[in-house]
Design a protein around this nucleic acid. Sequence first.
DNA 1: CTGTTAGCGCATTCAT
DNA 2: ATGAATGCGCTAACAG
Lengths: 362, 362
Amino acid sequence: MSVTLSDVAVRAQVSPATVSRVLNGNYPVAEATRARVLRAVAELDYVVNGPASALAAATSDLVGILVNDIADPFFGIMAGAAQARISAAEGVARAGGEKLAVVCNTGGSPARELTYLTLLQRQRAAAVILTGGAIEDPEHSAAVAAKLTKLADAGTRIVLCGRPPLPEGAGAPVAATLSFDNRGGARLLTEHLLSLGHTRIGYVAGPMERTTTRHRLEGHREALRAAGIDDDPALTLHGSYDRATGVSAAERLLATAPDLTAVVAANDTIALGVCAAARARGLRVPEDLSVAGFDDLPCATDTVPALTTVRLPLYEAGARAGLLATARETPAGPGGVEPVEAELKVRDSTGPARGGTGAGRG
Amino acid sequence: MSVTLSDVAVRAQVSPATVSRVLNGNYPVAEATRARVLRAVAELDYVVNGPASALAAATSDLVGILVNDIADPFFGIMAGAAQARISAAEGVARAGGEKLAVVCNTGGSPARELTYLTLLQRQRAAAVILTGGAIEDPEHSAAVAAKLTKLADAGTRIVLCGRPPLPEGAGAPVAATLSFDNRGGARLLTEHLLSLGHTRIGYVAGPMERTTTRHRLEGHREALRAAGIDDDPALTLHGSYDRATGVSAAERLLATAPDLTAVVAANDTIALGVCAAARARGLRVPEDLSVAGFDDLPCATDTVPALTTVRLPLYEAGARAGLLATARETPAGPGGVEPVEAELKVRDSTGPARGGTGAGRG
DNA sequence: CTGTTAGCGCATTCAT
DNA sequence: ATGAATGCGCTAACAG
């Protein structure tokens, strides 16, 4: 079999306990013996047995990062940032301290989310970071809340990143919540469009049962309402957070409501699909149709025209989530909730409404 | 503390051993007792202790997927596909069998790659999938080969996806290798450009020490050589696989070699940067400058003009890697190497060389 | 500062 | 088909 702690102890002529102590570094050991042990470790090429260690210590060094879609840079950026912070966390020279940050792809499936949570629980994970919008089905929410409570009870730190805080009643076993201002960002974006004279604005939303979807849509409607524009339900279409949704929704929208002068998409990926559909229809962006997205993904810059969108500091948020998950840094806000601001990025895909600047729907 | 196997045993009025057997399903148990145990498990909301189980069984259900950059869809797509296959692998109804597929982001750092491999080794991972190009530093390669040997010895299955096969001498502890035809794809692409009359072709390559970088560049040069064109070293620039590299490299290229009629980028992301730089310089794509990428990422479709590129079946390859990592499906090719074809995708970003069709550098 | 002694929770022989 | 006993490799009190 492989090399064990005792093997190292024998070679270093000390007791197993001593080896354990120098490896974990959390106990005073004479410099001479420490050196001897370290040399034995190197010579034997010893690697700690994680499961055994986790069993004895009742905790592991696993940190799980749950994402809805790993192929979507929105999640990739957050996950990468978090992982970088977690791995780099403890600057311990040689041994322990290292956390294993791993990302788990739920694919947006509630069942998979629960499965991963259970798997992480079974591994006695040190921390779990849940990223992105939550599913709003009451039953599923309750199940997740229950799981999180179990995890927290077992000593796992829970961090929410880009997901609204859990309701008070849920017992709030959450260490920290980075709450994206999706609603505010969406409001800003639609206000921008309104200021350009648009009044007939289509909206391509994400999946119905997601918090992110709902908040962005609500922000949009708030802006409309504040401007005294009645919300036309026919102008809002739901789909997935992908390009295909953007294409088909835009086609439908453009066919049924030719008087549309702008379309807001729930994220950049959808927006790209909307642009493609518009082009296919012979419409120029933004002269004939203004299009806006959300997230400010890297590729939003490279479209022609460059996409007007709402920037979310994904990298920074992910990094902070990583910090909160590992270190004992206590979160700032009340209830452990830290708001994350959204910033409007006006670029070239939005322009004045055709047929006047603020003339209304004439 | 939390619920243990014995707690379940007591409640179900059986021995711990029996509970273990029904949970693992790999042993005959009377239907009546099985039901009783299952009910106790449900009532107590019991979750297996992973570390304890791994310690006793000397294996875990962890599968690690190593990626160079999780924020890059190139890796996200492969990782997501692999993860989906691994999680869905065993259709076992309730209990065990479930594998925990996790992705580890090395960020392209050799040290992090080794660290993750060690961490995975310490967790006694069931399998490890290494995706994307390998770093070519001899010292690092040797270290990785050594680690992989250790892992394989401990029973971990190793799968390479998008990375060239390990040299024979390394002992080949690799279960399977999905080898992308980067060289062939690059050759196809440059041949396409040559057929359009381009002879002065710039090349924006990735990081020097990566296999992917080298193979794509070699394919490009092969095509050039086959066409009797001498390779001008000044036309090849190295950088990272990101947009910024594309921008700066294109600026330099365009400034120093104004007679360039085409630029090939080592991947789509770089190509997008090249397009942006060309536009900034007032050049039309493809009329004034043809631009091509590699990978066929989703966003390559949404640029204007749509990017000519080389398609790699990322999703399919990732899925196959997941299968090979979990099931005992033996790989097809000799030495466990399965070639993965690259396919030329001609779109709108490439066109005839300005100033004639094949007139040469006049 | 270091050695000794017990388990951590589970999978597995063996018996029965 | 089930129960009893043993040990996986390590950490954590205790001594000393």
